[in-house]
């Protein structure tokens, strides 16, 4: 049921993306005014500043919903759900942070989880290298990956 993931050297593309007319900077609806959500979004926008192709367009506030909630011992700290899609275009996305699983995470670690989910929001898929899109919290934290790395940013730059 899934399309094939295109894997490049340092990043992987899920195949999904926003219509190119509405992408930069990353905007979102922060359901609980959780400051680490703003912090993760700021990191992305700061990193993407250098991509002129991303300068004129924006995701509106209602397109991405981000909310911390308690889902119990699910094994995951963050979840990204592509809720509405039209072909391979996102229309609407949800990101939830599992407050149960991040109970003992530092602020940097929580920010890393949120920034990782924002990466999916751009259209990135998982990699198993020392980048933000590594799906293992353990791998990212033990390599101090809390914000987008060059490969993650290049991945977004290659999509839009």
């Amino acid at each position: 049921m899934f399309n094939n993931i295109l894997i490049c050297e340092g990043y992987a593309i899920s195949g999904y993306e926003w219509d190119s007319s509405k992408v930069d900077p990353l905007k979102y609806y922060n359901a609980n005014s959780y400051f680490l959500i703003d912090s993760a979004a700021y990191d992305w926008n700061y990193c993407l500043w250098g991509y002129p192709s991303l300068s004129s367009v924006s995701i509106t506030n209602e397109d991405v919903w981000v909310e911390p909630d308690d889902f119990g011992e699910t094994g995951w700290s963050g979840i990204f759900i592509a809720w509405e899609t039209e072909g391979y275009n996102y229309l609407y996305c949800y990101i939830f942070i599992n407050t149960y699983e991040i109970m003992y995470y530092s602020n940097d670690e929580i920010k890393s989880v949120i920034a990782h989910e924002f990466g999916h929001c751009w259209g990135l898929a998982h990699v198993y290298t020392n980048n933000l899109m590594n799906p293992s919290d353990f791998d990212r934290f033990s390599n101090y990956v809390y914000s987008p790395k060059d490969d993650d940013v290049d991945g977004v730059g290659s999509i839009y």
Binding site: Y16, W76, I79, P135, F138
Partner: peptide, 15 residues
């Protein structure tokens, strides 16, 4: 409805 292609990605706590 397969055509809607809805998927989930998560960040795993443990490795």
């Amino acid at each position: 409805d397969d055509t809607k292609n809805r998927y989930i990605d998560v960040s795993w706590v443990k490795k």
